[in-house]
Design a protein around this nucleic acid. Sequence first.
DNA 1: GAAACCTCGGAAACCGATTTCCGAACACCT
DNA 2: AGGTGTTCGGAAATCGGTTTCCGAGGTTTC
Lengths: 349, 349
Amino acid sequence: MYCAAMPTRKLPEKVGNSGRPTTISDVAQLAGVSIGTVSKALNGRGSLRAETRHRVLSAAEQLGFLPNKAAMTLSSGRTYTVGMITTDTIGRFSIPLLMGAEDALGAGEMSVFLCDARDDPIREQYYLRTLLGRRVDGIIVTGRRTQARPPIAADLPVPVVYAFISSADPRDCSVVVDEAGGARLAVEHLLAVGRSRIAHITGPERHHSATVRAAATQDRLTEAGLDLVGAPMFGEWSEAWGRQATKILLGTHDIDAIFCGSDQIARGAADALAATGRRVPDDVALVGFDNWDVMSLACQPPLTSIDMELEALGRTAADLLLATINGEPAQGRHSRPCRLVVRDSTVSR
Amino acid sequence: MYCAAMPTRKLPEKVGNSGRPTTISDVAQLAGVSIGTVSKALNGRGSLRAETRHRVLSAAEQLGFLPNKAAMTLSSGRTYTVGMITTDTIGRFSIPLLMGAEDALGAGEMSVFLCDARDDPIREQYYLRTLLGRRVDGIIVTGRRTQARPPIAADLPVPVVYAFISSADPRDCSVVVDEAGGARLAVEHLLAVGRSRIAHITGPERHHSATVRAAATQDRLTEAGLDLVGAPMFGEWSEAWGRQATKILLGTHDIDAIFCGSDQIARGAADALAATGRRVPDDVALVGFDNWDVMSLACQPPLTSIDMELEALGRTAADLLLATINGEPAQGRHSRPCRLVVRDSTVSR
DNA sequence: GAAACCTCGGAAACCGATTTCCGAACACCT
DNA sequence: AGGTGTTCGGAAATCGGTTTCCGAGGTTTC
């Protein structure tokens, strides 16, 4: 009978108890077999009588036995762990990548060590060493800048996949976003809704993403027999720049659409357009990039945007890593398409 | 001489090489000693001749030896790993917590497994089991909702610290934000800049954070001999609600300040104020909560806000966890103060 | 010159699992 | 009754470290 007042007895808990974790020997003793037999029973190896197997399983259940991963690692050589190094700060981009990777890695079947190198090469090498010391089965390298980066190290004993960013060595396996394709999607959409005087406001010219998207924007317009209105406006990835650039633009050109290099810029643009009495999308249509809900949904009107599908990218990266770990090496650059998300900033509702 | 065309030779690399990772035996063989001696030399144990110690160290260096953590774990019983379970989604709140924790854990000395339970108790227990299977040295439990939650499990074999959220069991160790104190800071600041007709717009009433902050807001006003203008306006944590609530407020009351339960709400309020011709801060002062740069800096004008100092909170949680791991159990609820960040939404520049 | 002592480094147990190899027990066949 | 084959489960090696214990060899002391 259970009595609330009595001192807590060590009941068999589903997850662990406060003492020393139970080992395979404890299970063996309780089941009255050897530890080898326990191992076979739990892993379905060898040939055991059904009765024996069952006896072991219920003993393990009763003790809440969880095999010690470190011991398994030692004999199998695998840790069922991967490392994820973000070369710059963890943020809006790395989180979806992480979630996607976790997902592909079986959500807990394999675990992920997340390392934030904070743009510091020393710290990056340091993390690399700790990951190698932990004998991770593989490494995913990522970062905010999409510029190809030097390989994290030559000749590592574990497979490496670059996600979002790419390695400068073409033999390395990289999974990247087709940002040019994303920009083309945006332009095509604007053309489809009847716009022809299109401007482009984006981030710093030193950023690979900004130049790639700007170039693709111009290319696609040229294909349609059009020209970009003015030159691509390079600046910051900020709302303030979006506002400022839009004001400049409105003073000098006649436009019916702006494709922005980020949702933040687009939001700034929306504010500037509203402040000068332009209606979105009737007078000027607006497309952003990133599909960052915090921006694209809060914007008035909600933003049409380009989604880079980062979670899927994380999944792909992890899948390629798993393939390599399992002996089917994946090499080279893999590019993934973007997705257009249409909202009220380009089509009247 | 280096020649670009010649096949890559296996040079002694700083980090790893492509073959099987080197073991302590390899080092022992190269140094001409036994593995026990290598262990002593590398860890500064035992008594060795300086010459021997040096010979071992340079052999280890030459081979790029990284001790296998799994093997160390097996004999020491420690994994130098902690788990961090976020009960809901990883996001804006968990990342600073993680960074702070990483920092306190020596950035790589101990590593962190981040687990996203996605508001699913089943998944939570599943992650808990995998963490226990990996024999983590401790667990940090966190989440977005600040409501006290049931303990993640009774009687675990490893220490647990709750961060940001708290455990319903007062004996558990929790580190939380003094949200009431934060709200009081906001009110005091508004009083200090001469406001007396203060309204409060915040999130859903079912959210602990919203009710706690609202209650503290009213209390502090009462202490000052004032009343809140109208009742606290509970709604959503969104800009749209901030806009909507502000419009309602302006139609029914005469106010000179709004304290908002989040920066998003405050930003919506700022937009609504601007749309109706009110100047911020001259006509209406505005204070947000969270000090989320994306919102508070992009807002026009930039928002005065309450910073919960989540990174410091993560550090504190990790410190308490370390203390417990090292045999100085930390118990009970630890509350940490907020910080007021003054910007242009409350003081004219 | 022998006993006592000190210094240094090796042998081996141990951590907790997996896996191989082998032998005991039993059934079946002639 | 004896030989053969099959089934089941245990003993022991192994993974890569740490740590304890002990002995070889040299030095000091009387």
